[in-house]
Computed example of a mutant assay.
Amino acid sequence: MRYWLIKTEPSTWSWQDQVLKKITHWDGVRNYQASSYMKEMKKGDLAFFYHSVHEKKIVGIVEIVREYYPDFTDETGKFCMVDVRAVEALPHPVSLALIKSDPRLSHLSLCRQSRLSVMPIDELSWKIILEMENKT
C-alpha cells in the first residue's frame, strides 16, 4: 500500500461533500506531475484529504477505490482520474503550519511545491502526521 495527499478547495469540493457522496471520482487534475502520481495510485491506497486555499489543513482520509481512467471533464483527452471513498475524518485537522514546523517532514512536496494538487507521502511521514493529529 502507498500513501498520498490530494488537495481540494473546500468551496469547490469539501470533506463534507466527500462524506455525503461517499465514493466519487477525483477529476479536474491538469498538472502533468500530479497526473503522473495519479497513474501510480492503486486500489486500496490511502490519501490524506487536504483543504487548500484559506484552510490549509488535512481534514480526512480517503481510499483509492478505482485506478486511473479517462477524465470525462478533460476535452483534450490527455488527463485521467481515480475514484476515492471517504474513510474517516480527522477529529483534529493537521495544519500546513504544523507540518512545516516539523523538520522530519521538510522533504514533502507539500512543503516544497505548494501548488501541486496530488503528491506521494512516504509511510514514515504518514505516521508522523497521524501522530500530530492525535496530539492537537
Rank of each mutant, 00 (worst) to 15 (best):
A86Y: 14
R66I: 00
E88Q: 15
M81S: 12
F79Q: 02
H92A: 12
P91T: 13
C80Q: 15
H92G: 02
Y68L: 04
V65T: 15
V65E: 01
L90W: 04
K100D: 13
V82K: 00
L105H: 08
R66C: 06
C80I: 00
T76F: 08
F79I: 02
D74Q: 11
L108I: 10
H107N: 11
D71A: 09
T73L: 14
E88H: 07
H92D: 09
P91W: 08
V94F: 05
S95P: 04
A97R: 13
S109P: 01
K100R: 15
V87F: 06
P93D: 05
R66P: 01
S95L: 10
R104E: 14
R85V: 02
K78D: 13
V82C: 05
H92I: 05
I99R: 00
I99Q: 02
E67P: 02
H92P: 03
E67R: 08
T73W: 05
A97L: 12
K78Y: 14
S106L: 10
I99E: 04
F72E: 11
D71W: 12
S109F: 08
Y68T: 00
P103T: 13
V82G: 00
Y68C: 03
C80R: 13
V94N: 04
K100G: 12
S106P: 01
R85H: 02
P103V: 13
A89Q: 11
V87N: 03
D83P: 07
A86C: 09
G77W: 04
S109T: 12
V65I: 15
L98A: 14
V82Q: 01
S109K: 12
E67G: 09
V94C: 03
H92R: 13
R104D: 12
M81V: 03
P103R: 11
V82N: 10
M81D: 03
R85L: 01
Y68E: 04
L105Q: 03
E88A: 14
R104T: 06
L108C: 08
D83H: 09
S109E: 12
A86V: 09
L90H: 03
S101E: 11
V87Q: 06
M81W: 05
L105D: 02
D74A: 11
S106E: 15
P93A: 06
E88T: 15
R104P: 00
M81P: 01
E88S: 15
A89Y: 08
E88F: 08
T73H: 13
C80Y: 15
D74V: 05
L90E: 02
Y69G: 01
L90S: 04
L96M: 13
Y68S: 03
D74C: 10
D83Y: 11
P103L: 12
T73G: 02
H92Y: 14
S101L: 09
R104V: 04
P93T: 06
I99L: 02
C80D: 15
L105E: 03
R85Q: 13
